[in-house]
Design a protein around this nucleic acid. Structure first.
Length: 715
DNA sequence: CTATGTCAGCAGTAT
DNA sequence: ACTGCTGACATAGGT
């Protein structure tokens, strides 16, 4: 699918000699670096680019500059600074361009009832939703004891596992389902939320926390659901997005529960979402399915409904060439997408959302627009982009396909807002055109085909023609094998490892969980992740080999304003996605120490470094990453895109030690996963962390990440 | 592999 | 009680 893209879209670089290494100083550092004497080599870019040798010292961090929050930030240039301002005390000090008028509580914002009321009254029986596996013809299907009501509660006296044998395609598998207490996790999230955050509207930090925890819980529920899928008769919770949503809404782990006209505090133009429930959670758009959100607003005389936000998902043929204009169809009339009613089309009526849009046209209030697009990484799914405020310019009635009346509304984007949807359009073109005229493009693929996707190199900031040249390798290079302390054997899952299979030794090592969801998202950060490796029987596409599959999103090395080169993505990325691993040459400890104090390498990844745990499910696992043995990687002369990732004290990417099963040698890798959803063109950063012992190759550097949590230096 | 169909879901609004 | 620009999967149709 994606594999073919790489070579074909990179014309003219096949002749490049990847073995040529330019020796120039790295750029990601914030300390002044001056041209080294080492000369460039015969490597030449089409533009005759000179290797980059120097990064100007960055001045003191300018006051008032946007603090860096994880996973929401669009490129700085596209953000109005004042939107990110916060007082050090954590009090929200957002600047509202649109004063909130007539904020009204949502009447269904329930106060948290007792934990028992949280949805378990339902008897979700979604039985024959199998993916080809035989359903309950096995005799013991009914006696498994899953009673639906208590599955998620931790039974104090219950055994840790409920398991049963069943045959599947002649192969005996043992399905185990560890008890997981989602309610306890939620309670922990709630405690952190209420204790740590002010929850005043406009506090982006609490919004980010609620939002990130939501997806963590959603992934966790998904993981458990995928195990249950393989146990006949086990009750199915159904959609994890809704399930997690209900829990969060009922507990009040959400922001902006009051409806309002105009901008929503804490939500920034360009923020992306992957579920409609996420829009509800942050107060951007309340209806879980409906396309138009509105509320009654008091006029001088009476109350009238006004439109607040719309979600445009292309379901009603709304598209228009100008991406600042949106033609939106009213709601109603199309009974065809609802099986409960007849399939006839009807005339739309001027009621509900349609009436609100009409009133908003006359009142002239701002309307938030969320654009739904097909998600590249997950073709069945959608990604929602908050495209900022629009105004309704006109409305009319059209005849739909079946001759019925359809209301149409023309919305025009307010000027002066950060770019959001338009940048997506540009990216679409950049990716398709091979002879692109993109400003600042230096190389269409700096990997020269070494990855399955091209990685572009751009600089639209200054005159630098590119980073120091290095050999592009996509994984680790060992000078000699390292012996494992505990030699281990791989698993025997010939068809691939499946969730809940307690016979799989790799799954066992991960605490009986397959650490990834079916679409390859990391469920949670672990101190050490066990993937299948060379000694396993499973195929390369095994679900427990996510970090081995190469790049999945279109990455780009770009020139930052003050931090040298950086890494970003052209594609939107879901929370928990694999980004890449840290490739380079594995150094032996003794080898490094022999080099003594003179050894300087800014491309060192030392797996003994420690970071604040990130993206960890509260109450589930609070471990920080810990490698089972020392691993020092140098990407100085050979490495991959990871070497361009800058440090941040509020990162949007986490690193994770991954052990791939191998009998005789160590096969420890460092893989990077996204903490939250990341919009296109957002710089990707991780926490370089602290090192236990400062050595020659750990030089202290001044941090300019700009986060309110900034520790001011890193290694 | 793209389009259309099926179906349970849920928050919110309307009655 | 009713509504809806869901979301995941299944099936059908196309190249």
């Amino acid at each position: 699918m994606e594999q073919s893209l790489g070579q074909e879209s990179v014309p003219g670089f096949g002749s490049l000699d990847k073995s040529k290494v330019l020796d120039v100083r790295p750029l990601r550092r914030l300390v002044p670096l001056f041209p080294s004497a080492s000369n460039n080599t015969s490597f030449s870019t089409p533009q005759g680019a000179a290797p980059f040798v120097c990064v100007s010292p960055a001045g003191p961090f300018p006051p008032g500059v946007a603090p860096f929050f994880p996973f929401f930030i669009s490129p700085e240039s596209q953000r109005p600074l004042e939107q990110n301002l916060q007082t050090p005390s954590g009090n929200a000090s957002f600047v509202f361009n649109n004063p909130i008028s007539n904020a009204v509580p949502i009447n269904s914002f329930r106060t948290p009832p007792s934990a028992e009321a949280n949805g378990d009254t339902r008897t979700a029986r979604r039985l024959a939703r199998s993916r080809g596996q035989p359903q309950s013809q096995s005799g013991n299907a009914e006696e498994d004891g899953f009673d639906g009501e208590n599955t998620r509660k931790v039974g104090s006296s219950r055994s840790k596992f409920r398991s049963q044998k069943r045959t599947r395609g002649g192969q005996d598998i043992n399905v185990a389902l560890p008890d997981v207490d989602i309610d306890a996790i939620i309670d922990n999230v709630l405690t952190t939320y209420t204790n740590t955050f002010q929850q005043t509207d406009g506090d982006r930090e609490s919004l980010v926390y609620a939002f990130t925890s939501y997806d963590l819980v959603r992934r966790r529920i998904t993981q458990i659901e995928e195990m249950k899928e393989r146990i006949p008769g086990a009750p199915r919770t159904g959609r994890p997005d809704l399930r997690a949503g209900t829990l969060f809404m009922n507990k009040g782990i959400r922001t902006n529960a009051k409806k309002r006209i105009g901008a929503v505090p804490g939500v920034e133009v360009g923020d992306i979402f992957f579920f409609r429930m996420e829009l509800c959670l942050v107060g951007l758009h309340a209806p879980t399915m409906g396309g138009i959100d509105y509320m009654g607003v008091k006029n001088s005389t009476e109350e009238e409904p006004l439109a607040l936000s719309i979600v445009s998902s292309g379901g009603y043929e709304d598209s228009v060439e100008d991406s600042n204009v949106l033609i939106y169809s009213g709601q109603g009339g199309n009974a065809s997408n609802d099986f409960r009613r007849d399939k006839e089309m009807k005339d739309q009526k001027l009621e509900r959302g349609n009436l609100a849009l009409e009133k908003s046209l006359h009142r002239g209030n701002d309307v938030r627009v969320i654009r739904g697009l097909k998600d590249v990484s997950n073709p069945t799914g959608k990604v929602y982009v908050y495209d900022g405020l629009y105004k309704i310019h006109e409305s009319w009635v059209d005849k739909g396909k079946s001759g019925c009346n359809v209301f149409k509304y023309k919305l025009v984007r307010l000027p002066g807002q950060p770019e959001a949807f338009t940048i997506w359009k540009s990216i679409e073109q950049w990716k398709e055109e091979t002879t692109t005229t993109r400003v600042g493009l230096i190389l269409p693929d700096l990997t020269s085909g070494a990855e399955n996707l091209p990685v572009s190199l751009v600089n639209d900031v200054d005159g630098e023609k590119g980073p120091a040249h290095f050999t592009y390798i996509s994984s680790l290079q060992y000078s000699k094998p390292v012996n494992l302390t505990e030699p281990s054997d791989g698993c025997l899952c010939i068809g691939g490892c499946l969730p809940g299979n307690s016979n799989c030794s790799c799954i066992k090592k991960n605490g009986d969980f397959l650490p990834y969801t079916a679409n390859g998202l990391l469920v949670n950060q672990k101190s050490l992740l066990h993937e299948c490796g060379p000694s396993c029987q499973c195929p390369p596409n095994c679900r427990n080999r996510v970090s081995q599959s190469g790049l999945k999103v279109r990455l780009e090395v770009f020139r930052t304003k003050d931090k040298g080169w950086g890494l970003r993505s052209l594609d939107p990325i879901r929370a928990g996605s694999l980004l890449c691993e840290y490739a380079g040459q594995v150094l032996t400890i003794s080898g490094v120490e022999e080099m003594g104090g003179d050894y300087e390498d800014d491309y060192i990844f030392d797996a003994t470094r420690t970071c604040q745990p990130l993206g960890v499910l509260p109450g589930d696992s609070t471990e920080t990453s810990k490698a089972p043995f020392p691993l020092i990687i140098s990407a100085n002369t050979a490495g991959n895109v990871a070497r361009f990732m800058n440090h941040s004290c509020s990162p949007n990417v986490l690193w994770q030690p991954v052990l791939r099963e191998n009998k005789n040698e160590s096969d420890l890798h460092i893989a990077f996963y996204t903490v939250g959803h990341i919009p296109p063109m957002t710089e990707l950063t991780y926490d370089y962390g602290m090192v236990p012992q400062e050595k020659a190759y750990h030089r202290k550097k001044v941090c300019l990440c700009g986060s309110i949590k900034c520790r001011s230096f890193f290694y």
